[in-house]
Design a protein around this nucleic acid. Structure first.
Lengths: 188, 188, 188, 188
DNA sequence: ACGTGCGGGACATCCCGTTATT
DNA sequence: AATAACGGGATGTCCCGCACGT
């Protein structure tokens, strides 16, 4: 039977925002529920595994959305790695700017916090990382780089974006993304 | 007046470890106190501002220790930026390895979590970032790079280390640090 | 109108097992439904009075089954009270053994827990007690004892079985049933 | 350092009453706290192991009190088993009567309910049973019975009291205790 | 500097019962 | 006869901060 409300979806979207700005442990179910307008009584109907399942769903959506962005920019700049990197950095920068520099990365936050406790999130987090890395690597290969070098540069770009986002939150600026793009123009 | 116990110091050290592995919100005072063996009754004697003050002390020590490491490696490799970068990456890598890939960065964790709530931590975090950045930049300048470029590369290295640590925790490997070092050898 | 599913019946059987091993309050509807495979949506179609009605049905079936056992053993040993008592004790003992000493008495558990709350169960519980007592008393009368003495001994046997079951659960042995049978051989 | 409040003691006494009348699972911490007047904030200071620890304390006190009763009646009736049994039954009967036939046995209730979940209560419950049994057996031995027979009759008396208490709650009468005493006069 | 104890609220989880729909 | 979803409260647990006495 098809779903008849979007309560579940709203909860996931609200949770993503809160996990990214406040962190996983600091965000209470109560806050997620009240801000999303989702009813409390049916939370465990929608998420039998509780907060952990919510986190898994957040991760899945966040991961897929970022992968889609990478592929879209890749398709828009075929064989043009520098332009691809520039636009990827720009996309991150503008998301940070438009959020008032409050948004962290869901993967980074959940990895940092939820790893110590439950094991359930480790697998998904690793999978997302690999997925992102592979999607970026393809763009580099199509720009003429060898497989090994593409993989390595993909990982460097990814980690650079992680770090740049941290820097961006702290300094409330997008300079870190610009520096990252500058560096890749040198590297490529 | 000399201190008569080291309870305060032990609490800070234990808090650092827990904040780095579990995060700030997920770590309770009770756990810090019990794992550090510090008595509960005098916690607010030692830390009148409570958990926030603990976080401030953790940040101060963590920041100073990292700055000292940067300066030490800088002094050991005068004018030799590539060697300096290699050794800095190695130092991070070996810390991750010896901790079983569980240690996050105190600055990153506290920035990600505590920014939403209190303002008290923002200043210190920014100061530490600037301090680290300046210390690295000096090494680059002494290696012959211009001021602006040194500053920029310092920030890139710093953010690269942030990202590499995230990668290292997730993948349980030190590859990210090696990739970062490889990239800098290209860049310098 | 014939029933088209056995969901109701399965729920009652599962509830009996859980009420007997865990108690009434400690057993959630969710557990009963999931372990019985009964669908949740139609629970209040089958049991308009909810959990209390479930308890009433459990009591009715449990009471009738025990009465039937008493009558069967009575019919098998006409006029032979000692043999009857031995076989009744054996029946209880083997049920305990085959359940791994986990099964309590439904009447005892529901009486102990549900008396404080609702009044609905008190009547049925008293009726079952009288029914069992009467069934046993008949056997004693047919073995030659007077009416008053038969009633009294029936109650003593019944209460002895209650107590022996408690002992059996705690000690994980059937000794208490053997002692009870021994005592009755002395008494008769 | 000595305790400065009796909050812990009051909680245990209230918990005993509620566990005996309502059962373990059906009694919420909130009810215990509010009825005992104990503060909520310090509950886990007094009982670090939570509800289970409360149950253990209830068990310990209940067990010791019953043992003391057995020994007192034993000392009052040296070598006189029938009088001892009569007075023990009377003591139980009058407790039931004065409580309005609402009090169950703490051991019976906790054994029935808490066995399924945690293992922590099994040991204490078995120990109490042995302690009671031994205390009764001594009286029988001092009345001239052999060791094996004394042990067996002690267990029968104990289980008879368990069963009689169940009967007493259900029928709201003390007849079961009188019947038990009658039976023992025959047996001795 | 530290033990003991309190205040009051938040946490994730699970509860039983009731809808509207099919 | 069953599904999806909800309502609203209760569960045990744990939280951080602050007293008082020594």
């Amino acid at each position: 039977m098809a779903r008849t409300t979007d309560a579940r979806e709203r909860a996931i979207m609200t949770a993503e925002r809160l996990f990214r700005t406040q962190g996983f442990a600091a965000t209470g179910l109560t806050q997620i529920l009240s801000e999303s307008g989702a009813p409390k009584g049916s939370f465990y109907f929608h998420f039998p595994d509780g907060k952990t399942e919510l986190a898994r769903e957040v991760l899945a959506r966040y991961g897929a959305r970022a992968t889609a962005l990478i592929r879209a920019l890749s398709a828009k700049n075929p064989g043009n790695a520098p332009a691809f990197v520039d636009q990827l950095c720009d996309a991150f920068a503008s998301e940070m700017k438009s959020s008032g520099f409050t948004l962290g990365c869901a993967v980074q936050n959940l990895a940092a916090e939820a790893f110590a406790g439950s094991e359930d999130l480790k697998g998904p987090v690793r999978d997302i990382l690999d997925q992102w890395s592979a999607a970026i690597s393809i763009q580099f290969r199509e720009s003429g780089f060898g497989a090994a070098r593409s993989d390595r540069m993909a990982r460097i770009l990814l980690n650079g974006l992680f770090g740049a986002r941290t820097d961006s939150r702290i300094t409330a600026s997008v300079d870190a993304f610009k520096d990252l793009a500058w560096m890749f123009r040198k590297l490529l």
